[in-house]
Amino acid sequence: MIKCIAIDDEPLALQQLELYVDKTPFIELVGTFESALEALVFLNDKAIDLMFVDIEMPNLNGMDFVKSLTNAPKIIFTTAYSQYAAEGFKVEALDYLLKPLDYATFLKSANKAKAYFERFKVDEENAGLNDRYLFLKSGFKMVRVAVDQINFIEGKGGYLKFHIEGSNPIMTLLSMKSVEEKLSPAKFMRVHRSYLVNLHKISLIERGQIVFGKVRINVSEQYKAKFQAYLDRNSMN
């Protein structure tokens, strides 16, 4: 399922997009916003795949908004103005739709997004995982990460958030299962449905929680015996 949001300062345009998304089985609308600034607050906490973005909006127009994002989702512009088309494709927009929209035009664009995610979804075949480093697709970039610098990996919905020593976290579209299968079990252990930790980076365990700075990770019942066995093998009692 492609998770998307829609941004448009015209309420009727948002209602139309919501109707079209509801008719399209492979897209889920998780938020609508009448300003880019509202959407920016949402994106600070949530990861999505796709944005339908109007361009001519007050305070912050859609084009400047997209350019301001470090790890932007894929973009489909929806606007009444054709003069931005070339600029839109410079920011690697998937499509540029002129209003008024009909459903056939919307569906064609939605299918283009579907084809993109089917082709470029990062999984175990193309993530470049190995014992020394991996390449993670984040927004428009492929970021090389040293495996030994990963503190832990956090599952967030359909995404993974890689917490890297000395760097900002990286959000990417991967399944926890695929990463767990590829990374060395001698270094990485699943301790919770949503957490895979680098055993070599653990320096403090307190009250049954693994502590990474301000983050405290609970070891769930499902993984407690395996983790305790690791501790027993490496403890001096």
Rank of each mutant, 00 (worst) to 15 (best):
residue 5 I to Q: 03
residue 9 D to Q: 06
residue 13 A to W: 04
residue 18 E to P: 06
residue 19 L to Y: 15
residue 23 K to T: 09
residue 25 P to E: 10
residue 27 I to W: 01
residue 28 E to Y: 07
residue 30 V to E: 08
residue 30 V to H: 02
residue 36 A to S: 12
residue 43 L to P: 01
residue 44 N to T: 15
residue 45 D to M: 14
residue 45 D to Y: 15
residue 50 L to T: 02
residue 52 F to T: 06
residue 56 E to S: 12
residue 57 M to R: 07
residue 58 P to N: 09
residue 60 L to C: 08
residue 61 N to V: 06
residue 63 M to N: 05
residue 69 L to P: 03
residue 70 T to R: 15
residue 70 T to I: 15
residue 74 K to W: 01
residue 74 K to V: 03
residue 75 I to D: 02
residue 78 T to H: 06
residue 86 A to E: 13
residue 89 F to E: 06
residue 91 V to S: 03
residue 93 A to P: 00
residue 96 Y to N: 02
residue 96 Y to D: 00
residue 97 L to W: 08
residue 103 Y to N: 02
residue 109 S to K: 04
residue 110 A to H: 06
residue 120 F to A: 02
residue 120 F to T: 02
residue 120 F to K: 03
residue 126 N to L: 06
residue 129 L to G: 08
residue 129 L to Y: 10
residue 129 L to C: 13
residue 132 R to V: 14
residue 135 F to M: 09
residue 136 L to I: 04
residue 136 L to V: 03
residue 139 G to C: 04
residue 139 G to V: 05
residue 142 M to D: 08
residue 148 D to P: 04
residue 151 N to H: 11
residue 152 F to W: 07
residue 155 G to K: 08
residue 155 G to V: 07
residue 158 G to C: 12
residue 158 G to M: 12
residue 160 L to A: 01
residue 162 F to M: 07
residue 169 P to W: 06
residue 169 P to S: 07
residue 170 I to V: 12
residue 175 S to R: 06
residue 180 E to S: 09
residue 181 E to T: 09
residue 188 F to C: 00
residue 189 M to T: 00
residue 189 M to I: 05
residue 194 S to I: 04
residue 196 L to P: 00
residue 198 N to S: 11
residue 200 H to Q: 14
residue 204 L to A: 10
residue 208 G to I: 04
residue 211 V to C: 08
residue 213 G to D: 08
residue 214 K to D: 13
residue 215 V to S: 14
residue 218 N to E: 15
residue 222 Q to P: 04
residue 222 Q to M: 14
residue 223 Y to I: 03
residue 228 Q to W: 10
residue 236 M to T: 15
residue 236 M to W: 13
